[in-house]
């Protein structure tokens, strides 16, 4: 489903060019559960951003569902993100003035879905997150775990193929963190590809496949050679 070949990403910092990713090759199949680990500055966030089409590689090719997306123009990228990618962030990034339901509906709103379709879908999604009684609560009325579950709801509301989680438990206590991990693992069971970037080896270990980055290169990949 995802295929990266020779992906490089360079950043210009002052006069210097810093290489965040250095010729990364990677293949990810439908429904995989992958953790990406590595020290700070190893390029794992950059990789996640490129996978999530938030950033474009300086060099190399990225095929998403057999389509070359590495050189798509901005609007086409936005459309790909909308359809295929779900994001979860460490700091949830819920919009404070909107209710849980409106936050979940946001991607559908941007995609121009009708109010009725949005209403129905957001209720179902929040219900599956165990938040039926929180539909109209605003983020500041929710606990951290609940907020992250709303954010997960928002990530999957468009039924994307890939769920990208950037330190999803980084801002949660261990109990809420466990709950959140269980929720996204459940989603993975149901078929979504799950890619988790984390510092936490406990969480990293739970994935089926572990990817370790070091200095912008894939240092270790537990993928079984077929």
């Amino acid at each position: 489903m995802i295929k990266l070949r020779g992906i490089c990403r360079n950043f210009q910092v002052g006069d210097q060019i810093v290489t965040a990713l250095n010729h990364v090759d990677l293949e990810i199949q439908h429904g995989e559960y992958i953790s990406i680990m590595g020290p700070s500055g190893s390029g794992k966030s950059t990789l996640l951003n490129i996978l999530g089409l938030l950033d474009r590689p300086t060099e190399g090719t990225y095929w998403l569902n057999k389509k070359d997306v590495s050189q798509l123009e901005e609007r086409a990228l936005a459309e790909q993100r909308q359809k295929n990618i779900g994001f979860i962030f460490q700091f949830f990034h819920l919009i404070p003035r909107l209710s849980a339901r409106e936050n979940v509906e946001l991607p559908m709103l941007l995609a121009g879905k009708s109010a009725n379709a949005r209403r129905e879908r957001s209720r179902d999604v929040l219900k599956s997150m165990g938040l039926d009684d929180r539909l109209n609560h605003r983020p500041d009325q929710l606990s951290g775990g609940e907020r992250q579950r709303v954010a997960i709801g928002r990530a999957i509301v468009m039924e994307p193929a890939v769920l990208l989680a950037d330190e999803p438990t980084g801002n949660l206590d261990s109990k809420s963190g466990d709950e959140v991990i269980q929720v996204i693992e459940q989603l993975n069971q149901e078929g979504i590809s799950l890619i988790v970037v984390t510092h936490d080896p406990e969480i990293g270990k739970r994935a089926d496949r572990h990817l370790t980055l070091h200095d912008g290169e894939v240092h270790h990949d537990t993928k079984k050679r077929l």
């Binding site: 901005e74 609007r75 993100r81 994001f87 991607p107």
Partner: peptide
């Protein structure tokens, strides 16, 4: 700024 980043991430193009 966060909200803008988020909207972009969940599929809003620049012009939106």
């Amino acid at each position: 700024t966060h909200e803008i980043g988020l909207l972009r991430a969940i599929g809003a193009p620049r012009y939106r």
